[in-house]
Amino acid sequence: MTISTLTSTEPDVAPVLPTRISVQPSATGVVVEMLDRGDFLAPRLLSIDGARVRIALVGCCAMLVAGDRLELDIAVGAGVELELVEPSGTVAYNARGGNASWTARVTVACGGVLRWQAAPLVISEGADLTRCITIDLAEDARAVSSEVVVLGRSGERGGALRSSQHVTYAAAPLLVEELDLTDPELRSCPGILGDYRVIGTVAIFGHRPDTLPSPTATYLAGPGALARVLSHAAHTIEHEMDQWWRAWNR
């Protein structure tokens, strides 16, 4: 009798430990039900003021390198306002043939608010990053976000980035965006990025502002708006983006 043993040729993949945050309403205002450190980010409570909570996302190690799988789960309860703070930016390093991923899953209950002014994300030469953000807003929930993506460090063209953002409001699609910046030649074409390498975005979901803060802003089909700016250097758009942020956080 011959017994054949099948062995897998796939490499062992360690399970991902996500960073988990859950803030929920309580009789006295708010309770932080979950503040779990993940493989790459450690949430730190900064303050609680009534139903308002400020939490910092602190990096645990150098990231992102080939094989890194950063995952973030955020739940904002009814009537709770959560502000996320990032003390430092994120760098996707040269993957040397590998790849990395960055995933955030957000739910905001009725009357809840998420404010997330992210630090810059830098895509180094040779990096290969897939980033996915999903935001599920209940009716009367709101989210305001700000982000800056920089393609390459000083003197670099930058690596490959695939970025998707899917936002729903009251179970209906509000924003479905797929951004493919993997090919440096294609993304440098006119009508895409040209010779720009910095993309700044401020968005509000769950509320339609009375006015748009700049000519580059646009209303979404549902309750929300988005403003985007391109530049050669991140510091040149800080003032403009800060104005948008303040306007949509009133």
Rank of each mutant, 00 (worst) to 15 (best):
V149D: 05
R20H: 01
A66K: 13
T201E: 00
A234W: 09
D242I: 03
E156A: 09
R131N: 01
V108N: 03
N99W: 02
A66N: 14
I48N: 05
L220P: 07
C189R: 11
I192F: 00
C60D: 08
T7K: 12
Q117S: 04
H166C: 10
S8R: 06
L46N: 10
N99F: 05
I123A: 08
A27H: 14
P173N: 05
L193W: 02
E177Y: 08
C60I: 11
R250W: 01
V176W: 04
S88H: 08
R115S: 14
A95I: 06
H207G: 00
G222P: 12
A171D: 10
E83P: 06
I192C: 01
Q117N: 05
V91M: 01
V65M: 08
P190W: 01
S101D: 00
T168I: 00
Y196E: 00
A170F: 04
L137I: 09
G50Q: 15
A138H: 11
G38P: 03
A75V: 14
S8M: 04
D195I: 05
T5N: 08
D36V: 02
W245A: 11
T218L: 01
A14E: 13
P223V: 08
R69H: 07
D49H: 15
G224R: 12
Q117A: 09
M34R: 09
M1Q: 06
V176Y: 03
A143Y: 06
T182M: 03
T90L: 14
A51L: 04
A127Q: 07
T107P: 04
I21Y: 10
V32F: 00
I123D: 05
A100H: 01
T5A: 08
E33K: 15
Y169C: 12
E178T: 13
V144G: 04
S47Q: 11
T216A: 06
A92I: 00
L193A: 00
A66Y: 12
L230Q: 13
A221T: 13
E178R: 13
Q117Y: 02
A217H: 02
T168R: 08
A75I: 12
T2Y: 14
S154Q: 07
I123K: 10
V198L: 00
T216M: 08
A225G: 00
T168F: 03
Y196H: 14
A127I: 05
T28N: 14
A247R: 02
G206Y: 09
V198R: 01
A104D: 01
V229H: 07
A92V: 00
L70M: 08
N249C: 15
Q243M: 07
I74D: 04
T168L: 03
T134S: 15
A143H: 09
C110D: 15
N249F: 10
T236F: 06
A172H: 13
T7I: 10
G155W: 04
L35H: 12
F205C: 02
G155T: 00
G191W: 01
E238W: 03
A170H: 08
S47L: 09
G152S: 07
G159P: 06
L220S: 09
G29T: 14
R52I: 02
E33T: 14
I21D: 10
N99V: 02
P184C: 06
E86Q: 15
L57T: 02
Y196R: 12
T201K: 03
A100V: 00
R96D: 10
G222A: 15
D183E: 03
V76Q: 07
R228H: 02
L84C: 05
C189I: 00
L137W: 10
R162Q: 15
W244I: 13
W245K: 13
V108F: 02
